[in-house]
Amino acid sequence: MADDYVRYIERTREYYLAEGYNNPYQWAHFEDIPFTPLTKSLRECRVGLVTTSDIAVRSATGERERVEAQTQVGGVYSIPFDTPAERLFSRNEFYDRYETNLNDVNAYCPVTRLREFATEGRIGSLPPRFHGVYTAYSNRLIMERDAPEVLRRCREDKVDAVILTPI
């Protein structure tokens, strides 16, 4: 059924209340939604990619990078678009580990698929890098610091449109 999708806001509120957390997360909510129409064909567009799926790069020797504790909260990072997909992996731990896995980066950060579409001409081109945003635990931090930084980098990359993927 298409309309029986999981209501995460309700479900997580109930779950954490039962776990003894009585301070439910305030999900971002806006009435007004911005809109910018695409003014040319995607075949002529440079298409950017931004993800919150916490992507890291394995070292060239194939050794899995040690998971370092982050020293800051949130923050923006960039990774070369031509990094081989098999060297990319996600450090995210907030996925449904009972049902699925993060073994294929293209299931949440579709670098290979986008490269295919660029080669075939379905999209004009890709920028030299894609961007990631770490979890910030704060809507204010995202709006005041991280979102403007993503915009700055996307402008530097001269992209015409952006694809965004959470986990």
Partner: peptide, 13 residues
């Protein structure tokens, strides 16, 4: 929030 910010600044998302 990032998508909204890009869109508000002229980049379709």
């Amino acid at each position: 929030l990032v998508a909204r910010h890009l869109e508000a600044n002229g980049i379709p998302t």
